[in-house]
Design a protein around this nucleic acid. Structure first.
Lengths: 336, 336
DNA sequence: GCTCCCTGATGAAACGATTCATGAACACTT
DNA sequence: AAGTGTTCATGAATCGTTTCATCAGGGAGC
């Protein structure tokens, strides 16, 4: 349907090679000819066929980004960072959503490889992603996002979750709390257990060893936050924690909602700190304190590592970049 | 780097045609030969080159989806619906984010067209998108999402925003409110003015004509919701509205936060209804009433229309599908 | 007038798949 | 034995680009 380069050539009275040159190296073409060709392109509605281009040239200008959940603000921010760097390097990003399903992840990786993308940024569904290894072996570099502690054979970017847990724990202890709670789960997710471990670190660094009670949840959802809150309801006032650290903001929002429903005042009766600092954390009726990860920066760094690896002249060394999170203190954790 | 079909052929001792048949019409190949070829594919790490396939076959199995903002839950839900339908039809979706920037929108459309996608689903940044017309003329069907009132020459899907406004307005009037507020803007966005018009409809259908005060905002953000709340602070108790309808949930969340900050009780002192029913609406400390749009369904319908148009046997008629929104009543608008 | 160089344009050979007309091998009928 | 299918495999043509060796046509230099 769309015109091809040879029709443009015929229309402009030149050879196909010349049209290609107008497209790719216009400085090689005499200005007058160039103009004529451009006019033909215009009038024939020519659109370059990327498949043919990629086939002949042997490579695309695309990188793949496979995330666990496009609806999660965490990943959309990472994606924003990736896109910025891609733009700067004149590359385009294909965003894929694995929806935490290894089947979908597999299909996407397969498709990306068939498309001959130059590289892939991925947060694999499981800690070990079987498709990734052979892909890297075939020469398509892959950078792990928020994964891959101790994989020296590839690049990765991550945020120090244990440190995030320490920040949250230390803050609550600082505020005078001695009966603490941790809401989160499943503990099989590294991020969750790291955040928990970080909180333990903070406790062990404190005289008198504050008590920590674990409220393990099935997932990191708002609903589970509510359920954690209901578990609270059964505890006597003397025994229940005066402060909780939630493994992410969804849990914290659900928990906060349930506290309000039970008539407990936040932060007076119970202090709350979340994790991720999603926009809705600051927008909660009682603005939520939260541990912020440099998400956009994470995406930028990942993309930069990948692009360095793509344009490798032999000097590339795999690196594991770890960022530090930051505690944002708001109303939900400080009694004035 | 990756092996090609002819290397596989050589390795298996057959012709390239046979390898291609194993890939595409395996029933034409004798089982024994097929096995041998599959083993060669396996051992050579062969990955099909999609560019070559698309070039020869003349078409891809990709559709493009261009949204205003990937971080917006509205669009991620629409995308989910689109992906479902695409999956069912064995197509793959390329998700593009225009970020409400016509330049980026242009680049993405250009790129999609160069990739020879089979069709495009788009919510254009501006009501009229100049790139779209010629693309459709070149034979790539496009379906408008949440746009395109009265464009008979193409398909579109949308939700009846005016009806949404009526639902919200009628509900608040039902609750006995007679001094009403509308928070939203800019009014140049059709959705916003439609929702406002719907609320007026509800008012005009009521005896005694409740008063409606407009709090126009610069954007549909949480911050603007807070600012609207601050405008409230200046009004005397006798004159200020007892209920507001916010043009989206972000505004409503910001407004709710500011009300809490001012010590006003929701819904007792002021009732609030939002729009979109994002997950965080139900998760607010005082769960937010909101007008829900059937977003996933919208995406599904859009994708179905597009796929119908792609596989057109001449019977396709452009359609404008309009869905009805639904009011979800929660705590923020009902005094028990 | 001859060579040398330079600028632009040319046209054919890839790239890696799909497709299709053709043919080989073999089994059945009659 | 000849004819008729049927089943598989073949290999060349093709898709729309890019790339590159080649060449035409003019100046410039001697």
């Amino acid at each position: 349907m769309a015109a091809s380069i040879s029709e443009v050539a015929k229309h402009a009275g030149v050879s196909v090679g010349t049209v290609s040159n107008v497209l790719n190296r216009p400085e090689l073409v005499a200005p007058e000819t160039r103009e004529r060709v451009l006019r033909s392109i215009e009038s024939l509605d020519f659109v370059r066929n990327e498949s043919a281009r990629a086939l002949r040239a042997g490579s695309t200008r695309t990188i793949g980004l496979v995330v666990l959940d496009v609806a999660n603000p965490y990943f959309t921010d990472v994606a924003r960072g990736v896109e910025q760097v891609a733009d700067e390097n004149d590359m385009v990003v294909t965003l894929c959503n694995s929806a935490e399903d290894t089947k979908r992840e597999d299909r996407h990786l397969q498709h990306l490889e068939e498309q001959r993308v130059r590289g892939v940024l991925i947060t694999p569904v499981t800690e070990q992603c079987p498709r990734l290894e052979p892909m890297i072996a075939r020469g398509i570099p892959g950078v792990l996002v928020d994964r891959g502690s101790g994989q020296p054979n590839r690049c990765s970017v991550a945020v120090d979750d244990r440190m995030g847990g320490r920040l949250a724990g230390a803050h609550l202890i600082d505020q005078g709390h001695r009966r603490l709670g941790f809401v989160g789960g499943p503990m099989s997710i590294r991020q969750v257990s790291d955040r928990h471990a970080g909180m333990r670190d903070a406790i062990e660094a404190t005289k008198g060893l504050p008590r920590l009670r674990l409220f393990e949840q099935a997932s990191l959802s708002i609903q589970c936050g509510r359920e954690a809150g209901q578990q609270f309801d059964g505890l006597s006032e003397r025994r229940r924690p005066t402060a909780v650290f939630c493994a992410n903001d969804l849990l914290a929002l659900g928990f906060l909602q349930e506290m309000t429903r039970q008539g407990l005042r936040v932060p007076h009766d119970i202090a709350i700190v979340g994790y991720d600092d999603i926009v809705y954390a600051g927008a909660a009726a009682i603005a939520l304190s939260s541990v912020r990860q440099p998400r956009e920066q994470l995406g930028r760094a990942a993309a930069e590592l990948l692009i360095e690896e793509i344009g490798d002249d032999g000097s590339h060394r795999h690196r594991q970049v770890v960022f530090e999170p930051e505690l944002i203190v708001r109303d939900s954790s400080v009694t004035k």
